[in-house]
Simulated scan of single mutants.
Amino acid sequence: MKTVSATPPGHEFGIRTLLVLAMAMPMLLLYAVSSLGPQLVRDLAIAPESLGYFTVGSFGVAAVLSLRAGALVDRLGTRFALCLLFGSVALTFALMASLPGFYSLLPATALLGLAQALANPATNLLIARRVAPQHKAFVVGLKQSGVQLAALFAGAVLPVCALKLGWRGAFALVVPLALVLALWSLRQTGQPSSPRTARGPLALNARLGLLMAVQCCVGIILSAFVTFLPLYAVGLGMAQTEAGLLVALFGAMGMMSRLVMTPLGGRLREEAFLLAGLQLISGLSIAIALQADTTSTTLLWLAVSGVGLSAVATNAIAMSMLIRDQAFGGVATASGMVSAAFFAGFAIGPACVGELARRSGSVASAWGALLAVLALAVVLSLCLAQLRSRGGVTTV
């Protein structure tokens, strides 16, 4: 892999901060809808299960665009790709803060799909070109922790802002931040590299296909769990602000797991076994959540910590595998393909669980179906480990 000169020491902190925020901002809507869910349901006069449709537009578009996002990033360069990413975040949140009614908001969320599609290819390519090999695994974990930083912010800050400004006012606060980051990305990443011819479509090899399938399952689990978490907690008697803190805890545990588990995976001979183990822990955690009731809400805090410490780390480990193992394909394009599968899971997870909850009458019974999805993810991870052991791993 061709690597551009390493980042100068004076710019290293700025690049890493930009990487974290580039992952955080496109995912903020998911956690904002989750933490402000009870208020959205009340103010928009919608059924609680309808919250899942907020993610269908953005992650559905992200899944489709991700198939070619790698080629687009190769052509634009990381500088303009990141500027486009933050600009689309600003436009989405501006529309969300101003458009009336539930059905007018849904198309606005689709705009965020562009930012979500660009996030992993742009940040992974920046790491591949600007970060020394011995630091790559840690920096991948660091930038992936930005997704959970979004959850921490949404759970701890947005409910408090919404009490004073309303949920629309809370959304509006994101717009100037995203615009500042768009301008900062032009300065921080330096001059764009010389124009490159975009590569053709990536041949879907077996190991890439298996990793995509694993990440689709993980996307279903994470999105369905966190979207309905506050509603489930409020149903057990928690206040909305306390339920928002569950999302913040999920984010904090996820940040910790990605910072610790990604470098650990980079030192293992086979990271796919780590993926399988973390998914098993996630299954146990969700099973614990299903045992919570009005007299044992402590179990819910324990379950949220478990999912945050396990399933959340798997996406960061997968991205580290793509950067380190050339057999998956080119970094930007392979990242886009895996992101497409991950976002497809995010698009269908909340909607499907919401429909199951509507038919069964409870979120708990719908969450039970997630255990079967996790079992499939474990099997797929073990198949990936076996395939890589036969074909070998070529690291960079």
Results as ranks from 00 to 15, higher is better:
Ala69Tyr: 09
Asp74Ser: 13
Ile46Gly: 02
Leu126Cys: 09
Asp43Thr: 15
Met96Glu: 15
Leu158Cys: 02
Leu65Arg: 04
Pro107Ala: 12
Leu158Arg: 00
Leu142Cys: 08
Leu105Ser: 08
Gln39Phe: 01
Gly101Gln: 14
Leu111Trp: 05
Val89Asp: 00
Ser50Gly: 06
Gly70Thr: 05
Gly60Arg: 02
Thr78Trp: 00
Phe59Leu: 02
Met96Thr: 07
Phe102Lys: 03
Leu126Ile: 05
Ala156Arg: 03
Arg75Met: 14
Phe80Ala: 13
Leu163Cys: 04
Asn124Tyr: 10
Glu49Ala: 11
Val89Arg: 00
Leu105Asp: 09
Ala47Gln: 13
Leu118Phe: 15
Pro107Ile: 11
Lys164Glu: 03
Gly155Tyr: 02
Leu126Arg: 11
Leu152Ala: 07
Ala137Arg: 05
Asp43Ser: 15
Arg68His: 07
Ser98His: 09
Gly52Ala: 00
Ala137Tyr: 10
Pro100Phe: 14
Pro121Val: 10
Cys83Arg: 12
Val73Phe: 03
His135Tyr: 11
Gly146Thr: 04
Leu163Gln: 11
Thr78Asn: 12
Leu76Gln: 14
Pro133Cys: 15
Phe86Gly: 06
Ala154Asn: 05
Phe153Glu: 00
Gln39Met: 09
Phe86Arg: 06
Ala119Met: 12
Leu82Ser: 02
Phe138Ile: 03
Leu44Gln: 12
Gly155His: 04
Arg79Ile: 04
Tyr53Phe: 14
Gly101Cys: 13
Val64Phe: 10
Val61Tyr: 14
Arg42Gln: 15
Pro159Phe: 07
Tyr103Asp: 12
Ala150Tyr: 02
Thr123Glu: 06
Leu95Pro: 06
Ala90Phe: 01
Leu142Val: 07
Leu125Asn: 09
